[in-house]
């Protein structure tokens, strides 16, 4: 039995301990905002918050999250995620959309740690999130825009 919380709710699962958190979220809990893109921590589509820090759920065996707090895009709250999503929507960042949950999660994590990131900060934080549609120009712009709204 593995016990942890997802988006503030208690979860107890009797499941193969090697099952990646990604597939637990999707197949068992039906939290489908977290996406599968590569399975090997190369693309970032599966990014969630694990105890408040960004984490690739595809390389996170469920045994590892015992007692932890998992937050998916469905459960994110706070000024940073709001600013990020508002900025994303204002300039229509997504194209196909598959990577965007992960992009939004990583951008939020960045702004939580660096409220006014430089282009280099953005490159470093977002380099693990692949967008096959290459919406990168707008991702960069939206992160800067979100930072400005957070400044108030």
């Amino acid at each position: 039995m593995t016990s942890f919380t997802v988006n503030g709710r208690d979860v107890d699962l009797d499941i193969d301990p090697d099952t990646p958190l990604l597939w637990v979220l999707r197949d068992e809990l039906r939290l489908t905002g977290t996406k599968f893109g590569c399975g090997v921590a190369q693309c970032g589509a599966c990014t969630v918050m694990l105890d408040g820090m960004p984490r690739r759920s595809c390389v996170t065996p469920i045994s590892m999250v015992e007692g932890s707090e998992v937050t998916t895009i469905e459960g994110m709250e706070g000024p940073e995620i709001t600013a990020v999503q508002t900025a994303w929507e204002a300039i229509d960042v997504p194209q196909c959309g598959w990577c965007q949950s992960g992009q939004v999660m990583s951008a939020t994590a960045l702004l939580q740690q660096i409220p006014s990131p430089t282009d280099e900060d953005i490159n470093n934080a977002m380099a693990g999130n692949v967008c096959r549609c290459a919406t990168y120009v707008r991702i960069r712009q939206a992160i800067h825009d979100a930072a400005k709204t957070l400044e108030g």
């Binding site: 090997v40 820090m53 960004p54 984490r55 590892m64 951008a107 960045l110 470093n124």
Partner: peptide, 21 residues
């Protein structure tokens, strides 16, 4: 690592075998 993507974003306390590769 960087703010927003540090080592523990991908690496954990143990080696983790890939499920598909």
């Amino acid at each position: 690592g960087a703010a927003g993507m540090n080592c523990s974003t991908c690496h954990s306390g143990q080696n983790v075998e890939f499920t598909s590769d």
